[in-house]
Design a protein around this nucleic acid. Structure first.
Lengths: 161, 161
DNA sequence: TATAATTAGGACCAATTAGGTCCTCTTTTA
DNA sequence: TAAAAGAGGACCTAATTGGTCCTAATTATA
């Protein structure tokens, strides 16, 4: 269940597309470009606009554009725009009013985990998502990339047909 | 929806309790100690046992104990024991067989995010959860802790009653 | 000025899924 | 041999998600 909501997923796809285009684009346009359901695209764009991640223009020839450079938008921001604050446990949502509060001492350090995740996602910018092969994260990935080939003993190869 | 399943939450509480006790403990015992529903505790313990995070002993006087030191158990492992592999997007679950695969180029870098989260959670050990104020993460938290007091101009203070 | 294109803001419903509960079988100790 | 305890699932319902639709507000253009 540690999964993003579909809408959030859509959100990242749309944001990525937006980051790659220089003109303002309508919701329907973006939906078509991403092959996402138009209604869902509209919904998610409204969320993103409300959070100030995209700038909206109403009326004919209206549409959406990034509110700032893709490098200045983090994945955390996108997620929180759509799902609300990142909180892996109920506790951090309800102001510590969970139903097993007594043993919350037992789990007192959960907020550290929330923070860790938020920070990790903060490290990833929309630019990282949009431009494969560029950006801080992609560079890191290259550096620690698994080998593209491995050696195996020749006599371990068998004919299967 | 970036939230842990309740069972996972229970899992961490139980693991924490287990980390703090030196004797083997039965599921019912652990449930009582954590005020968790006994059935849920049993279920989660089975998952944890299957994943090899706890060692189980069947029969009378049976029970569970950590399979290795708390410092050698990461939150990632606990989560994956209960929820399966961490994959924030569907994509990484279904071997890239999602329904909008075409635009998956658009989101090609999502696996970087999955990795980031997994790594972040890998940094947090059960020991960190169990012992507030000790462990790598807690130390980090202290170092970057927000100030416990701030200065405000005296003339901004108003009497409200 | 009217109309078409668009976003804003929700309401609403169906299908999925999570969260609980329960049942039976196996293993071990007293 | 009986009681205590884990293993492994099946199963149900209550909540949530994901999708759809509707209406109002706003803007360009004919």
């Amino acid at each position: 269940m540690l999964r993003l909501a579909k809408l959030t997923d859509y959100g990242t796809v749309i944001m990525t597309t937006l980051a790659q285009s220089d003109t303002r684009r309508s919701a329907t346009d973006l939906a078509a470009a991403t092959t996402l359901p138009a209604d869902a695209a509209r919904k998610v764009l409204k969320d993103l606009a409300r959070a100030g991640l995209v700038q909206s223009e109403r009326g004919a020839h209206g549409g959406y554009a990034l509110a700032r450079p893709a490098t200045d938008i983090s994945v955390t921001q996108i997620i929180e725009a759509i799902e609300g604050p990142i909180a892996l446990t109920e506790c951090s949502i309800h102001d510590h009013r969970c139903d097993i509060e007594q043993s919350c001492g037992t789990r007192g350090n959960w907020h550290l985990i929330n923070r860790a995740v938020r920070m990790a996602l903060n490290q990833v910018s929309l630019a990282d998502l949009a431009m494969p092969g560029s950006g801080r994260i992609a560079a890191l990935a290259r550096r620690f990339a698994p080998p593209t080939s491995v050696s195996i003993p020749a006599d371990s190869i068998q004919r299967t047909s």
